[in-house]
């Protein structure tokens, strides 16, 4: 186990943790930026095709990461349509991949929460003279603690994911190596206790993030 403590104290490990958090938080912010308005919009506005979109958002909860990784790889590769961006094997590509995976989760959970609130308070909100779209900020404020869970679910999907970022990030030491790809690598080197130790660190970080988010969320409630 001494290898575990040496690893934990190294600069390389700090970079890995910082990159994991940086990539996954950025992806979560992107996913919230798209998923929050999208989910709320699907809850309050009725238009042809809405049901299909809701079904789609829920179906994409099961989006396989490795497929997302492969699709993005083909898009971002030099011989692909977005190759000129030079994004393949960079942290940016990993943010994109995790955002694609987290957005449906955020959208589906936001839709569920706001649809319930809309059913309950929609009448009252509209009596106040607000159009359905105008009611969205109200609904979001009302449901903020439950919406926090949507954000955390998105973050959870992002930080725990390995299949997509391995393909588009390449697990490059010191550049695109994250907690999960490092765990996969140590497992493949047969360093099982080190891999498991890193796994516990990852779980600890997730708990810390979740606790912080809840503390902030209840702070905004008073």
């Amino acid at each position: 186990m001494s290898e575990f403590w040496t690893t934990l104290g190294s600069d390389e490990f700090r970079r890995i943790v910082a990159l994991s958090l940086g990539v996954s938080l950025s992806a979560t912010v992107l996913a919230i930026a798209v998923g929050l308005p999208l989910g709320a919009w699907l809850a309050v506005c009725s238009f042809p095709g809405r049901r299909a979109l809701v079904v789609m958002a829920n179906a994409l909860l099961g989006l396989p990461p490795v497929v997302v990784g492969l699709a993005l790889y083909l898009l971002l590769s030099h011989s692909g349509p977005l190759g000129v961006l030079g994004m393949l094997f960079t942290p940016g590509a990993m943010v994109l991949a995790q955002a694609v995976l987290a957005t449906p989760i955020v959208a589906a959970l936001v839709h569920r929460t706001t649809a319930d609130l809309w059913e309950e308070y929609g009448g009252a909100l509209q009596v106040d003279g607000a159009s359905p779209l105008r009611a969205i900020p109200e609904l979001i404020v009302m449901g903020r603690t439950r919406l926090l869970t949507a954000g955390l679910a998105g973050f959870g999907r992002a930080i725990s994911e390995v299949g997509a970022i391995l393909v588009v990030g390449g697990n490059i030491a010191g550049y695109t190596r994250t907690m999960t790809t490092a765990i996969a690598l140590e497992t493949s080197k047969g360093n099982l206790s080190l891999a498991l130790g890193l796994g516990f660190v990852l779980i600890g970080i997730s708990i810390a993030i979740s606790a912080t988010a809840f503390a902030l969320g209840s702070g905004g409630k008073k």
Binding site: R15, A18, G22, L25, S26, V29, G92, R144, Y175
Partner: peptide, 24 residues
Amino acid sequence: MKTFTRRLGLAAGLALLALSSAAA
């Protein structure tokens, strides 16, 4: 709502900072 947006902005800023230092 405002504090929420501000926190979101802060989180995004921190995340991008972490990324740009890694990419630089």
